[in-house]
Amino acid sequence: MTTNDIANHETFTLINSVHDLTKTVNKLFASDLLSNVMGQTEENDCLITMLNNINVIGVASLNDLSCIVFTQGITVKKELIDKANELNIPLFTTTFSTVDAIIALAKLDGK
């Protein structure tokens, strides 16, 4: 599954401007605790979260995550979008809960 596959799925909306949607997603990782994300994620993982603050983008960049999916229909702050644009990290939103987003993404990934 690539980030482009997520962008083309009806459940997920790409909300920022990135020039690269070719990355292959390694694994799905859901958490709202940054230490957990920092310590447990690997390169090209997809982070699923409701955490709407700038440090999410920082951690995604530090761990070279492939993308971030914000759940429950939250309105992602502009500062996050601007920073993600700068770092070329795709941001997606969905009205799904975190659990339902994981299920949808796992199905998309053929699991």
Partner: peptide, 17 residues
């Protein structure tokens, strides 16, 4: 905590790595 910190994993993570 509102900003996603305070999980109580900081020092244990440091010790681990």
């Amino acid at each position: 905590i509102e900003n996603g910190f305070g999980a109580g994993m900081g020092l244990p993570n440091i010790k681990a790595v």
